[in-house]
Design a protein around this nucleic acid. Structure first.
Length: 289
DNA sequence: CTCAAACCTAGCTCCGGTGA
DNA sequence: TCACCGGAGCTAGGTTTGAG
């Protein structure tokens, strides 16, 4: 998230990450965090390995019942609580620095404004939203603002009043008032979307709009997969018409596609635009074409 | 050089409890 | 009966690092 959106969610209350339950930290953990924070302040920016070398926190039982590095857990918990932030990454690994968030909202009205701003951020990303999806999104904000968990119900009611609204075939749809869908022209473009792109994130809406079932199957045992390990939804103009599985072998991009109508569009423009999208992918991955 | 561990990432589904 | 709520249980693979 951007710094301004991050600021909307802080300062967070004295709670653990959601997976750890909502109890406050025990004294021992508080002490550990305090020592770690002093260490990070002293060093400026730290790599998790550097921290573990210094403290040797050992292992803890993780959310899944397995064993995890305790230092990693603690860093993550402190990041969530707002004591640290990720300054950058080195080879994907988070490099942490100390952080101090701003003051909490002065009164109830200011707090409601904050929450409404957060809801609007989500609405802008995911609109147009079926009612169930809007409820779900607002409810998910309990992870973003656990300190205001009890206020989310009323925030949903305000959102339903504030957002533009239409009822189509028995489903209520919501979107930000300032967005004018009529002015968004369909583009002659092929896009391979990620499984979590806002266009496809709400799987129920996906089915409503395009009439087929899309699932990410990375977590599905291989023999049970229907679309492929990491199928990317294939957007052509304003329709998601199929999916693609991409991989890199010996420095070359491999691609396999599936189509809901079992064959690609006969349209000549489609082939041209699909090639253009694959070229963009090669460029993004730094591959030779 | 190989291998294992650590770390990272953006999920899905089921089920029982609650309340209208 | 149904929507909502929240927790439990399970899961794939890529990259980097460092020990041996």
């Amino acid at each position: 998230v951007t710094r301004s959106v991050q600021a909307l969610m802080h300062p967070r209350s004295d709670t653990c990450v959601p997976a750890e339950g909502r109890a406050p930290w025990p004294a021992e953990r508080r002490k550990q965090a305090q020592l770690l924070l002093e260490f990070v302040r002293e060093r400026g920016a730290v790599h998790p390995r550097e921290v573990d070398d210094h403290f040797s926190h050992g292992t803890v039982r993780n959310y899944w019942g397995g064993s995890s590095n305790a230092t990693t857990h603690l860093l993550d918990a402190m990041l969530y609580r707002g004591l640290l932030r990720v300054a950058r990454r080195e080879g994907g690994i988070r490099i942490y620095t100390a952080h101090q968030h701003g003051l909490k909202p002065a009164d109830a009205a200011a707090r409601r404004t904050r929450i409404d701003e957060l809801v609007d951020v989500a609405a802008h990303i995911y609109a147009p939203l079926p009612g169930a999806c809007l409820s779900d999104l607002v409810r998910r904000l309990r992870f973003a603002v656990p300190q205001w968990h009890s206020e989310l119900k009323s925030a949903l009611e305000r959102a339903k009043q504030r957002l533009s609204h239409a009822r189509v075939d028995g489903i209520d749809w919501y979107w930000p008032a300032e967005v004018n869908a009529a002015r968004c022209a369909t583009q002659d473009t092929v896009r391979l979307l990620t499984p979590f792109d806002p266009v496809v994130w709400d799987r129920d809406r996906f089915e409503l709009l395009w009439g087929w079932v899309y699932r990410l199957e990375a977590y599905t045992p291989a023999p049970k997969r229907k679309l492929g390990y990491y199928a990317l939804p294939l957007l052509w103009r304003d329709r998601v018409i199929g999916w693609g599985n991409l991989s890199v072998k010996n420095g070359h991009l491999q691609s396999e596609f599936g189509y809901v109508e079992s064959h690609p569009p006969r349209d000549r423009a489609f082939k041209r635009e699909l090639d253009a999208e694959l070229d963009r992918m090669r460029a993004f991955l730094g591959l030779e074409s």
